[in-house]
Amino acid sequence: MSETAIDGVNRRSMVARALRHPSFLIGAAITLTLLAAALVSFVWTPFPVAEVVIRDRLQPPNPVHWLGTDAFGRDIFSMLLVGARNSLGVAVVAVAIGIGIGVPLGLAAAAEGGLLDSILMRGSDLVFAFPALVTAVMITAIFGPGAINAMIAIGIFNVPVFARVTRGAARALWGREFVLAARVAGKTRARITVEHVLPNVASLIIVQSTIQFALAILAEAGLSYVGLGTQPPMPSWGKMLADAQTMMAIAPWLAIVPGLAIVASVLGLNLLGDGLRDVLDPRLDRTR
């Protein structure tokens, strides 16, 4: 959280650091590929994604169906593209819920302290005490399975994560000289929070976002796998794995491809997060 990290002065060296950083580059490349796949799926897929052609069922990868077809003759590559859109969509909303509620709470708790701070800490303890999956199962059970409810279920667990990360970093800042100087100058707590604290915790929030993003993709895949996430005919990576499991003996590639897509996405986002941490804050020891 260096004071100048976001300022223009260091921007050039930040870019230079990023271009030399292997895990940042690999992570960014994978993440951009994922994003591209998701965007492309809006305008183009090799085959209509829900098109059932029983005649073409269970084809291994070939020049027409690049990654083969499933038990209903649906094109796996097309499903993979739409699955990317789906995973990203759920993850974006789940992380946005976490940031949108968690960051203001964390900032307020750090600025005000006292009762608000205690309530926030005890409240996050409470949310952490609920095994995330159990709660996700309960939420989807109440509101019905589906992508939207999966977003909410995953998003709820992001709130205390962002609240705590923000609070911790912000509290440390409130003891620093430049914040003290601003207080002496007569700025209100709210104004100091917006002008001095938020810019300095931003990099930390960005790094945490990539981590939560990766976790959200894993969670969405898990929920869809057990049938509580995205509903058919909309393809999702988790659902593809669930369908593939029964076909394992005759069509193992069906189970390999979506799994690799999940691993690559999560790995890419984690690498990007590691890279961003170093790029945004060069003072942290990279080797730890």
Binding site: A221, L241, A255, G259, I262, V263, A264, V266, L267
Partner: peptide
């Protein structure tokens, strides 16, 4: 950390 445990289970 990137491998979903259910996929690893399937494999």
């Amino acid at each position: 950390v990137a491998v979903p445990n259910f996929w690893f289970g399937i494999l």
